[in-house]
Design a protein around this nucleic acid. Structure first.
Lengths: 115, 115
DNA sequence: TCAAACGTACGACGATCGTCGTACAACGAA
DNA sequence: TTCGTTGTACGACGATCGTCGTACGTTTGA
């Protein structure tokens, strides 16, 4: 992968997470779908495991937006890039925010029905 | 005013309020500032009473975005257009959402210091 | 009656956004 | 070593966004 094992992906620290960036990141239907998938998962999920109606390069873009906003953490594992929701950091920085947004998203129509 | 007393401003009904639109509306620092001002107010506030660092026409634009997202309700009162947070509708549609965002905004730096 | 206050409408502008296709790099397996 | 899998990088594209200035319409008050 371009980002080899030695170089780490840029993530904002907990204190650097900005509300506007988080809200913007979650205001896109595709990204909200990704976050919902991450919220339901027990394990970290690879980028390719998401059933979203966009191409690979668009996927890369969306994960980058989520990572730079501080919503997810990305880690390289072999050829896969694995994604994890930063629930603890988000909860510490903006208590209740992720939970209420995720709950709000539940009774919203999905952008695309998933299996 | 262009929109005379007889013609009403377009507002989404409670059920038409979309999460993505709300998050997008609140992801702009100026609009978040407006909403914070509205949340603190007991009475409805006129557009001009907000101390935001943008011109009048930009203000008009932002209030329109907030209204069309279902975040605020606008009502004409004489020459003033008066704004009110749709707290009840938002609470019914997305329980806790507005509150947690407002609370999150509190320990975020203001875009511009206000009196 | 007339002017000031309030806010909109319209058009413009540069910036950002979401999307894609192509090319490429890294890792793992045969 | 070679090939398939995984995902990135880069450039492009149209669309939307946030901002402004100017012109104008309403209402209120002098």
């Amino acid at each position: 992968m371009h980002a080899s094992a030695t170089e780490t992906l840029a993530h904002p620290s907990r204190d650097e997470i900005e509300l506007a960036a988080v809200l913007h990141a979650l205001s896109d239907p595709v990204r909200l779908l990704m976050v919902r998938g991450l919220a339901g998962a027990i394990e970290a999920r690879s980028c390719g495991s998401f059933d979203v109606p966009v191409t690979k390069s668009t996927c890369t873009h969306h994960f980058k937006v989520l990572r730079e906003a501080g919503v997810i953490r990305q880690r390289q594992e072999g050829t896969k890039r694995v994604n994890l929701l930063r629930e603890d950091d988000l909860e510490a920085r903006f208590p209740g925010l992720l939970g209420t947004i995720l709950q709000a998203a539940e009774h919203q129509p999905l952008l695309a029905a998933r299996a």
